[in-house]
């Protein structure tokens, strides 16, 4: 996935199913604040696309435009082949949106909440009952189906919100921070569920701050910063690795001798310790292991400091400064 994450933001697929979401040159300002600045984005059907960016970078605004709630100042948007501005109802019928912050009607039960939304999507009552039971089982809320939504915990409400976004079997799923408030078990369930939805040919766009989380589930990633989609320095070129050896002195001595630019990690020169090293991708790492072992350095471990997304994200941060 490492290459995909970096490349998909730039190169659209040559063939395959039509893209679920296409955004071209979309700008949107709130007064003097330019929330979106000519952003481009493409999310393919059948894949999970991560939307990554710092706070205030325009992720939520973009999702509001995609959900058909905000008019962009300029640019075009296609969601499941429909323009949410010119043809709102058609686009909304195929879009499931889960906002980052939302409420539930406290006096209604979880089942009533979902049935109300099914009715709002004009699903016939008989079909809706079956669908709601399915969804409650999917998000593991069937025990709470007939309890008022006010007794649900934050994570349970979050799951109810996810079920709500899925009630009309949308082709395109827009999830804003879906994992926040979820316990580890639910996060795994969410990942499995999203994978299943993508495998059914749906387009899934997920924004999150939990990058390790995204990294495990996303096929593609789009980075946005200050309202623009940006191409991060690709992860494959150079990344920071954590190199640990039984003797720090031997490791640093060898690295200095071969002229590698290492940074101190932890440990004392006499005992075991580690350094941080810029390595060119997996091949570079393999090369390093070969050379170190050949030189007699007692290597114990070699691991990337952070995930690919996180590294890419950090280069973004640097770019911003």
């Amino acid at each position: 996935m490492s290459t995909d994450v970096a490349d998909s933001a730039v190169t659209p697929p040559a063939a395959g199913p039509p893209p679920g979401i296409v955004v071209r040159g979309v700008s949107r300002s709130f007064g003097a604040v330019r929330a979106l600045d000519a952003i481009d984005l493409e999310a393919r059907a059948g894949r999970i696309t991560a939307l990554v960016g710092p706070n205030g970078s325009g992720k939520t605004t973009l999702l509001l435009v995609l959900a058909g709630l905000l008019v962009p100042d300029t640019g075009t948007v296609r969601v499941a082949g429909h323009d949410p501005v010119a043809d709102g109802p058609a686009a909304r019928a195929r879009t499931g949106w889960m906002p980052d912050a939302f409420g539930t009607w406290d006096t209604l039960t979880a089942r009533q909440v979902l049935l109300t939304f099914a009715a709002a999507y004009r699903i016939p009552t008989a079909t809706a009952r079956v669908r709601v039971d399915e969804l409650l089982a999917t998000v593991h809320l069937h025990e709470y189906a007939d309890r008022p939504a006010s007794v649900l915990s934050r994570g349970q409400k979050q799951r109810l919100g996810l079920a709500r976004a899925l009630v009309h079997s949308p082709d395109v799923l827009l999830l804003d921070e879906p994992a926040s408030g979820l316990d580890p078990r639910s996060r795994v369930d969410l990942r499995i569920l999203l994978r299943k939805l993508a495998d059914e040919g749906r387009t899934v766009l997920v924004s999150s701050h939990v990058l390790s989380e995204l990294e495990e589930m996303a096929d593609d990633a789009v980075f946005i910063s200050r309202g623009r989609s940006v191409v991060p320095e690709t992860i494959t070129t150079r990344s920071t690795w954590h190199v640990r050896a039984l003797s720090l002195g031997a490791l640093t001595g060898w690295l200095t001798a071969v002229g590698a630019a290492w940074r101190p990690g932890e440990g004392t020169p006499d005992g075991p310790g580690s350094v941080l090293l810029e390595v060119s991708g997996d091949e570079g790492a393999a090369q390093l292991v070969r050379d170190a072992v050949a030189a007699g350095v007692p290597l114990t471990s070699l691991a990337p400091v952070a995930g690919a997304l996180e590294q890419a994200y950090l280069t973004l941060e640097e770019e911003r400064r």
């Binding site: 008019v71 501005v85 709102g88 209604l108």
Partner: peptide, 27 residues
């Protein structure tokens, strides 16, 4: 600016009104 379709803004169906009214009354 992009053209906004206002078709559907004033569309009213008994089903839709009842759904919202029921929700409000239940609350």
């Amino acid at each position: 600016q992009p053209r906004i379709s206002r078709r559907g803004t004033w569309g009213v169906s008994w089903h839709g009104v009842r759904t919202v009214a029921q929700l409000e009354l239940r609350q």
